[in-house]
Computed example of a mutant assay.
Amino acid sequence: MSTQKLTAIIITFNEIDYITQCVNSILFADEIIAVDSFSTDGTWEFLNSHPKIKAIQHPFENFTTQKSYALQQASNDWVYFLDADERVTPSLQKEIIQTINSKDTASAYWNYRSFMFENKRLYFSGWQTDKIQRLFRKSRCEFVDDRLVHETLKVDGSQAKLKEKLIHYSYKNYEDYKGKMLKYGRLRALEEFNKGKKWTLLHQILRPCWKYFNHYIIRLGILDGKKGIIICYLNALGVHERYKELKRLRTNT
């Protein structure tokens, strides 16, 4: 049986604190492509000098267009996407290799993630069921154009789930995570603006409150202690920013 080849793809911007460990975790791939949106902290220099990486600079518009561009660069049909703050464990590496070389494969696979608050795992706060599409066939999948953040795949064929979890070091510190949530919020606002959604004062007030209540109480963030309070607040802040930005976009049209 011939061995299937795998392309690993990483999207980067100023990820010098994470990129070495991320790349080291995916060195088993036959091809590694990194698409960098003009980093200024040494990330680009690291990527461009690495012997196993095909490094490309490309302007960032949104996550979907950036990942669609990166996908076009892959030489192999099987691709595995990961962010610079994610790590593939040895057990996940083994499962990925076994999966793409099995006789009966799906077109795309969901990957559960373990959310890391600094260097310790966060068990609740809405992250306990976090999963994302990471492993798939390039020939059978494409990113949906109308999603600017939390990009979604359109899959031709069946989907399945990997058992092993991807490690996600999303929370480096308060200001870093706050910046992510505000950026995601503004992109979601543009996404909803493009779909013709309206801003209302009710949404501006209630949606952030519901986000916090849902993650802190219903999704058991209260069991994460102080960390749960911080994460749930910042996630709710991202929702508040979404509607604040949507109001601004509507006002300026």
Rank of each mutant, 00 (worst) to 15 (best):
G42K: 06
T43R: 06
W44D: 07
W44F: 15
W44K: 03
E45T: 10
E45G: 00
E45I: 02
L47H: 06
S49C: 11
S49L: 05
H50F: 09
H50G: 04
P51M: 07
P51E: 05
P51L: 10
K52Y: 11
K52H: 11
K52W: 07
K52E: 00
I53A: 11
K54I: 10
K54S: 10
K54F: 08
A55Y: 14
A55N: 14
I56F: 11
I56L: 11
Q57S: 15
Q57E: 15
Q57T: 14
H58N: 12
H58G: 11
E61L: 12
N62K: 12
N62A: 06
F63E: 11
F63P: 04
T64D: 06
T64Y: 01
T64Q: 13
T65N: 06
T65M: 12
Q66V: 08
Q66K: 12
Q66T: 11
Q66H: 09
K67P: 01
K67N: 04
K67S: 13
S68M: 15
S68T: 15
S68D: 14
S68H: 10
S68V: 04
Y69A: 00
Y69S: 03
Y69Q: 05
A70R: 12
A70L: 09
A70M: 07
L71E: 01
L71A: 04
Q72E: 12
Q72H: 06
Q72C: 09
Q73N: 01
A74S: 13
A74H: 00
S75E: 08
N76R: 09
N76V: 03
N76S: 03
N76A: 02
N76M: 04
N76C: 11
W78V: 04
W78G: 08
W78L: 03
W78P: 11
V79Q: 08
V79C: 15
Y80K: 08
Y80I: 09
Y80G: 06
F81G: 00
L82N: 00
L82P: 01
L82E: 01
L82G: 01
L82A: 04
L82F: 02
D83A: 09
D83Y: 03
D83S: 11
A84M: 06
A84P: 05
D85C: 05
D85P: 04
E86C: 14
E86N: 06
E86L: 01
E86D: 04
R87T: 01
V88F: 00
V88N: 03
V88Q: 02
P90F: 10
P90W: 13
P90L: 06
S91G: 09
L92K: 00
L92T: 02
L92E: 00
Q93T: 13
K94H: 13
K94S: 13
E95P: 05
I96R: 01
I96E: 00
I96M: 02
I97G: 02
I97D: 03
Q98W: 08
Q98I: 04
Q98P: 01
T99A: 09
I100C: 12
I100M: 12
I100W: 05
N101A: 03
S102L: 05
S102H: 09
S102W: 05
S102G: 12
K103G: 08
K103W: 05
